[in-house]
């Protein structure tokens, strides 16, 4: 199942992505966007982000400098 989305993107980014598609490195623009989203989600673990913020809280409240 697929969902159509509408997004406003910087012109330069779109041009670069379209060139990538035209050069044949990826099937089409949709595939590129899906892959970019997948990689973003894989590399942005919410658990990791929260653990870093918890470390911020500990440092902020109880740090030594």
């Amino acid at each position: 199942m697929k969902t159509a989305i509408q997004a406003e993107l910087p012109n330069e980014l779109v041009a670069e992505a379209r060139a990538f598609v035209e050069q044949g490195w990826v099937g089409d623009f949709d595939e590129l966007l899906a892959e970019a989203l997948r990689r973003y989600l894989e590399s942005h673990s919410t658990r990791l982000a929260e653990s870093f913020i918890q470390a911020d809280v500990a440092w902020g409240l109880r740090g030594r400098e």
Binding site: H44, S45, L48, F52, D56, V57, W59, G63
Partner: peptide, 23 residues
């Protein structure tokens, strides 16, 4: 988060906006 993960792997201490506010 990515930069903080990289910092940790490089042995660098890193904190963010919330840490500065609480500090």
């Amino acid at each position: 988060t990515g930069a903080r993960l990289a910092a940790r792997n490089l042995g660098l201490e890193a904190h963010g906006t919330i840490g500065v506010l609480l500090r």
